[in-house]
């Protein structure tokens, strides 16, 4: 019965969007590491993306309110640091969602999300959020953000 409920919680959390990039969910982002049931409560393990990412607090609050809205009150959220979050955990489908949204997905080869050219230049290793760097396409001349590999 609990394992069925655990599956349901995974599904619920998959509906909680990343506060900065709403086209992907916190599950797709890879920050929900495990859900188990002990001591009469669901234990949800979360790992931060970047140490100082302000979105972390927001998505934890969003997870809490999503569960409460769905009448689940017996849960604990614990933050873990190991293994450290990596963009390797993103699936091909998730990366495609990012590209369609206009963000060049994490890859060793930076590709323009508009015209798919790999003829691009780095403008700055730092972008509007900790997870993104700033680039310019030399083909279509559009500026774009790249989700950094980490």
């Amino acid at each position: 019965m609990q394992s069925g409920k655990i599956k349901e919680i995974w599904k619920l959390l998959d509906s909680v969007p990343d506060p900065e990039i709403p086209v992907i969910s916190v599950v797709e982002l890879g920050v929900v590491r495990n859900i188990s049931f002990t001591n009469n409560a669901y234990q949800i393990l979360i790992t931060p993306t970047y140490s100082g990412c302000p979105a972390v607090k927001t998505f934890i609050d969003d997870i809490k309110s999503c569960l409460k809205t769905n009448k689940i009150f017996n849960f604990d959220i614990k933050i873990i640091y190991a293994p450290a979050w990596t963009t390797d955990w993103m699936s091909v489908e998730t990366k495609e969602k990012l590209r369609k949204y206009g963000i060049s997905p994490p890859s060793n080869k930076v590709v323009c999300p508009q015209c798919n050219s790999s003829n691009t230049v780095l403008v700055s290793e730092f972008g509007a959020t900790a997870c993104k760097s700033f680039h310019k396409c030399s083909e279509c001349l559009e500026p774009f953000e790249h989700f950094k590999c980490i």
Binding site: Y50, S51, G52, C53, E125, F126, A130, F134
Partner: peptide, 20 residues
Amino acid sequence: LEEDIALSNISLDLFGQANG
């Protein structure tokens, strides 16, 4: 502007590490 963003981002990383 790029450096403003870079140094502020580095600051955030360091605060996050300190918090841990």
